[in-house]
């Protein structure tokens, strides 16, 4: 993981966004953003083999 450390300096204080009563670290905000992206992608990306499936209700 040394290469990652050379791109992002992880040796220091965390960065926070503060807006009124909302306080969130940039790291957590990135994870939340990734979850939203994954959620939207899961809704719209085609599922492999969808047409071939048998129904079983």
């Amino acid at each position: 993981m040394n290469w990652l450390g050379s791109i992002i300096n992880l040796d220091g204080y965390g960065h926070y966004l503060h807006w009124h009563f909302i306080l969130v670290s940039v790291a957590n905000l990135i994870v939340v953003g990734l979850m939203v992206i994954t959620f939207v992608a899961a809704l719209f990306l085609p599922f492999p083999g969808k047409g071939r499936r048998k129904e079983n209700r």
Partner: peptide, 16 residues
């Protein structure tokens, strides 16, 4: 232990 799933399960949102 079902052999098949309903057709609507064929979506990424059901994978999580």
């Amino acid at each position: 232990l079902p052999d098949t799933q309903p057709a609507y399960v064929a979506s990424w949102i059901y994978v999580f």
